[in-house]
Simulated assay, not measured.
Amino acid sequence: MKYTELGKTGLQVSRVCLGTMTWGTQNTQADADQQIEYALARGINFMDTAEMYAVPPSPATYGKTEAIIGDWISRNPSRREEFVLATKIAGNGLHYIREGGDITGEAVIKSVDQSLERLQTDYIDLYQLHWPNRVSPHFAKHWPGRINFSDVDRDAHVAQMLEILQALDVCVKAGKIRHFGLSDDTTWGIHQYLQLAEKYDLPRVASVQNEFSLLHAKDWPYLLEHCVHEDVAYLPWSPLAAGALSGKYIDGARPEGSRWSFAQRNGLFRDTAQSNAAIKGYKEVAEKHGLSLVQMALAWVDQVDGVTSTIIGSTSMSQLEEDIDAFELALSDEVLKDIGDVFRQYPSPY
């Protein structure tokens, strides 16, 4: 397993991060225990969760994933030091979480305590804002006209950011969290947090995790350039486009028990004619070179300049083993050229 520094934190994290969002819906406690043990044995020392999980998000599943991880930690307290644990505070819009309200300083302090209780740990290594209070161009909102930046009250949002940073500082000084990161945010958001941290001597943003894959690479090159030069770790989530790059949903297939057979909060916005065609194209490339589509797609993300650690999620041990093995691959120039040919045909298929 290869390791990379997480921004400027001094923490060395594995190039693979174990995602956990299906624990509590598609996966049981026993499944999670097995995945954790296997991941640690393979050298993975980075695990990501969120208060909102399990998914699909609902009042019934809220907090379940953190509780599952906490159950494992309670039975293995001496092993807590073996991994970097990341979790996230949910943003606004979910009526059953803080009545759907914004992330505020008060919300941060309360939510950190609640996550610590569910996780049954004394500290969180990386505490992330799941999405910003302003509407960000994620979850298929990146097309022109979907959101209007000019409608945003910039000063009000910057004031909110400062309040959030001040609350995070309280948590850092109390030893409850070590570092903080962003999720589903933009270059402007990262920049504002960096400026505020420097101006007011507050915690520096360590990382950002955004959706990134062969089907959704909108952060390249501008946001990734910013991350590289500002030493902000970039953590791709959904590197298989919610399972689409496994090929199992080609031409409308819906295998029983698969993620796309569940109701999705934002619908199946990744399921488009362009995506279907792109996946078929990538599948042909993988078959031509004797690779699995899954491993080729994951290896491609891993080799993108600026990527720190890729968040994977699996519902079965066989999937987890295949995913981790992908990070031992080195894609040849010929493979990368063939991938590039498909990418140019379908640069933004959803």
Rank of each mutant, 00 (worst) to 15 (best):
L224C: 08
G175F: 05
M317W: 06
H142W: 08
A86C: 13
Y234W: 09
I339L: 09
P239R: 00
I190K: 03
A167D: 10
S111F: 04
Q128R: 05
V84T: 14
G243M: 00
D122G: 14
Q166C: 11
Q29A: 11
D125F: 01
I324Q: 00
P236K: 10
D125S: 14
I44T: 13
S183D: 00
P347E: 10
H95M: 12
D48A: 15
S207G: 07
D151M: 14
V152P: 04
L214M: 13
I279P: 01
G257R: 01
P56M: 13
I44V: 15
M317L: 15
V108Q: 12
P59A: 03
V307H: 07
G306V: 02
E256Y: 10
D305Y: 05
G24E: 10
L329D: 10
L94C: 09
A30M: 07
D333F: 03
N276E: 08
V294S: 01
Y62S: 08
S111P: 08
F262H: 11
G24Y: 00
D71Q: 09
I109G: 07
A39M: 09
P221W: 04
S275L: 02
M317F: 12
K218Q: 06
S207Q: 10
V108A: 12
F180N: 04
A233W: 00
M52H: 10
W260V: 07
Q12E: 12
Y96M: 12
